[in-house]
Amino acid sequence: MKAAPALFGLLLLGTPVQSAQKTMNASDPVSAAARFQSPAGWQRDTGSFGVDHFVTFSKGSLRLRVQLLGEKGSRYAAPTAFLAGPEAKGKDGKPPAGSLIKAGKRTFRVYTRSSEAEIGPQGMGAPGMLRIVDEAFAVIPVGKRFFVLSLTRTLEVPPESPLDQAPFLALLSSFHPK
């Protein structure tokens, strides 16, 4: 862990709360490659891991994500590699089976998985937070690249109800590669 920066020079004078000033919409590779509907009331964001770009929509413990993989230098060269890897496997360590589900007018193979980790502040051996993640995802190949669309629910308490996939199916039904 890095030592926290010294912020002794910070101005303590108040600054007005940031209004919802619009940001300039820089194009992102995911939106350039596919059309999909932003769910109302969810926080939109963009990001990347190496050459793999993604768009996320977050609301409370839920996160929808559209991720573009398979570019040169991607962490997964093909859908088969993704499905055989740790980002698709569940607690049992096995590749997911998936089931066919209708979203809009099309049918998709939707996979589900769950994972649980006990984590604390990095490097610390103190009592840890439970991070319980339930996920539904679909893999959509487009040429040499592929999209992974997912809905994730992250909780710190064991859930008493299963993941409601409705927001995910709505995203799937709106998704069209360009």
Partner: peptide, 24 residues
């Protein structure tokens, strides 16, 4: 190590998890 498994399982989402864990 729980954080290791968290990163391996979702490296793209990992920074967001850190940001709600500690102030730095």
């Amino acid at each position: 190590e729980g954080w290791m498994w968290t990163w391996i399982g979702d490296p793209a989402g990992y920074p967001a998890a850190l940001k709600t864990n500690q102030a730095y």
